[in-house]
Design a binder for these strands. Sequence first.
DNA 1: GCATAAACGAGACGGTACGTCAGGTCTTTAA
DNA 2: TTAAAGACCTGACGTACCGTCTCGTTTATGC
Lengths: 210, 210, 210, 210
Amino acid sequence: MTSAAAAGTGAAEGTPRGRPRSEAAELAIVGAVLRLLDRGGSLGGMSVEGIAAEAGVGKATIYRRWPNKEALLLDVLVRTELPEPEYVDGTVRDVLVEIMEFFRMAALARRERSTLTLLDQFRAVPELHQRYLDQVIAPRRARLRKLITRGMERGEIRADIDPDLLGDLLVGPMLTRTLLHPDAGLDDPTLSATIVDTLLQGIAPVASGT
Amino acid sequence: MTSAAAAGTGAAEGTPRGRPRSEAAELAIVGAVLRLLDRGGSLGGMSVEGIAAEAGVGKATIYRRWPNKEALLLDVLVRTELPEPEYVDGTVRDVLVEIMEFFRMAALARRERSTLTLLDQFRAVPELHQRYLDQVIAPRRARLRKLITRGMERGEIRADIDPDLLGDLLVGPMLTRTLLHPDAGLDDPTLSATIVDTLLQGIAPVASGT
Amino acid sequence: MTSAAAAGTGAAEGTPRGRPRSEAAELAIVGAVLRLLDRGGSLGGMSVEGIAAEAGVGKATIYRRWPNKEALLLDVLVRTELPEPEYVDGTVRDVLVEIMEFFRMAALARRERSTLTLLDQFRAVPELHQRYLDQVIAPRRARLRKLITRGMERGEIRADIDPDLLGDLLVGPMLTRTLLHPDAGLDDPTLSATIVDTLLQGIAPVASGT
Amino acid sequence: MTSAAAAGTGAAEGTPRGRPRSEAAELAIVGAVLRLLDRGGSLGGMSVEGIAAEAGVGKATIYRRWPNKEALLLDVLVRTELPEPEYVDGTVRDVLVEIMEFFRMAALARRERSTLTLLDQFRAVPELHQRYLDQVIAPRRARLRKLITRGMERGEIRADIDPDLLGDLLVGPMLTRTLLHPDAGLDDPTLSATIVDTLLQGIAPVASGT
DNA sequence: GCATAAACGAGACGGTACGTCAGGTCTTTAA
DNA sequence: TTAAAGACCTGACGTACCGTCTCGTTTATGC
């Protein structure tokens, strides 16, 4: 029905009869949502009528593509997910810092916080909730986990730690600073390095090795 | 204005004429919200009319106490905040584990996730946003920070770390598991200890091995 | 549900709880419809949103009173039915002329023509169709029939005619001139007398003529 | 749905080259309207989309032929107007009865009543209103008037009556029974004769000739 | 002990937005 | 070129809530 369906079904739709969906309209809609977000609107406070007006599009054109408001908003978030750079080579520590920088930037993009709103609203539409987790969160976690595992194999990270827990330890501070004390911290360019190094060294006093 | 105002202003209300506010109604309202939440409703999808009906109360009785829906929902969350136990004595490590257990329990109470929805919706009502941060988050952070500082003074924690960052490192995994992969992890009773110990030891391989 | 229901049920509504329906709003709605009609709108081309806007009223206030647009419009027609004067005494011929004048005036009120639209639209909602017939048409017919019967008893009208057919013969020309050639005839003040007299005399040449 | 029209119209599909089915589409459209009418639909409640679907035709194919919905519906009515028989010879009384029988049959065809809906809807499109009056009503009236005039010349009808009024007196009962009390009367085969004879004789008692 | 005054349940009020449907136009592919 | 299919914008439909405002009733205090 929407691009989700397109992603799901392989192909073989048969010949599409009738006037094809206007790609321009689709872009106008997504663009309108982003424009309204940047103009200070919150995701939850957005109305389909407002989006249609901003996009210069009929409401039906929106509902032809997305079954409801939440699906549209989620889709916009998925589409605007920043492209993660290729983390080429380097010590695991350096790549971790790089990944953390990506998270920091994504969070700073100020859309992240609103995202969480949807995660809750989607309890009523569980497949959407799952879709966000699958399409945005899971890939991030997978990349992180792969890097961590590699670090363990190389001997740069202790091998007796649950890689998932380590991922959470890394991502966690980004999340708390996005949600719980948003006024502080995210714009410190040394934050990523500090987090990674602190984790690497541990918080116990140096002498406590014994 | 509301019970918040009552808490804020000292007194000097003059003599209250007329029929006093029914405490029973207030309890019925809060109870209705909790009942609806437990029944699977999401915070965002809740309607004042539904709450009033569930509580057997007129809408005006709600609006007499809270200025709008968000304030009511936030207030319910604040009121149902679990009472934090007194963390008496013990090594810093043990107390940290205890605190983390409290966070884990609060998150498991399943209200936490919905809470985040409000944090975003409150961008439109910033003083409510601030109030949640002030009344729920800040106290938690303060307790945590105090404990960390004490740990540093006692030499149980390295003193060259930003205590706030350390707080974020501790709380982060609880948050990620609440929001980003809720299916896993929170019900593991050893989680808190694992997090604290991992942090204490660091994730780098033991340099001076053997 | 609406005034129809009120007319139907005898009484015993129990105590009406809550804020009572605003009579002002009801008047504003009906008034708005009439204003829009006078401004040239056709009954069929009228929108509930337009009516609500013209009346300065929320749409829900309309739908609280009438279940749909057609019911509202029909109700307006029923309410604005001209009060028929008391046809006191006089020869049957004179009273018939008087009645016909009433019909002519009602038709001239320019609402009659639009009424017919509803009569057809109501095929989908038969009870409304019936209601118009019952509340507007039937009373008119009854009055006419009573007068005709009286005329027969008094010997002023031939007794071997179906009174209903006679009623149709009288009303017919008003109807054709409203619907089928509206540009002509209705504003001739002698029309009613001409119809009645033509019918009384018959259209065949006077047998015992000369 | 695609070959529905082909199934409906029994026409030869023949060579699909060039311009295969201009006329077939037209017939399919008109046929679809009549089918929907017979199936109980009202003229006003008919949608172009429904007609197109029923006809197995694209909406554009309809709009290529008629400028709007009303024009289509009116055209269908005009096309399905019963062919009026040649009223050869006989006394004027007999021919009048014959004409009235034609009106009665047309009214019984049950399309007449819906017609009236259009007459009102056409206030917004006055030239359509006029067209129906011109193409359906006026010819009927002309024929009637001609006959009446002939009757007057022959001395079978009083010459001091407005022929148009007389036409209205004749047609009126058919109209009232179509619109105002549709349950009664139209299927009585003696109705036409009764109306004509009643009019000829007049409704005043016989003695009143003086 | 009786008047005053405010709170109470109920529900109507003017609005805004929802998701659907239809009107009339435009744009594809197939024949 | 013409047809079918169906997308496009517009605007109305009838519904659900928002936060406010009467209603008639109930329950405290103060004169």
